[in-house]
């Protein structure tokens, strides 16, 4: 079983690779407003997250998700639906 905190840690680590170097990231950092990440970059990051957690992530999720914490929650939700083990 994986916890939401563990997911968040991995999400934030991955975001760090896509964000401008040296930019502080916390769970409530807005990917577009605070990090200036263009939508194409965020979508590329979603592909990495799909592989990281072995799930399918609909890019329309970005209409409702804009921070690492929200992403982690969404991923946990997807993992629950994917195999029912979490």
């Amino acid at each position: 079983m994986i916890t939401q905190q563990a997911i968040l840690d991995r999400v934030m680590m991955l975001i760090g690779r896509f964000a401008p170097p040296g930019t502080p990231i916390n769970p409530n950092t807005d990917l577009a407003q605070d990090l200036g990440m263009e939508s194409i970059k965020v979508m590329d990051m979603l592909m990495e997250l799909e592989d990281e957690f072995d799930i399918s992530i609909n890019i329309n999720i970005l209409m409702d998700v804009s921070t690492p914490a929200q992403l982690a929650r969404a991923i946990l939700n997807l993992m629950e639906h994917a195999d029912g083990t979490v």
Binding site: M47, E50, S56, I57, N58, I59, N60
Partner: peptide, 12 residues
């Protein structure tokens, strides 16, 4: 894809 409302999965 957005117009139709489908689930959209990108591949590299």
């Amino acid at each position: 894809c957005k117009l139709g409302g489908a689930e959209i999965i990108r591949f590299r």
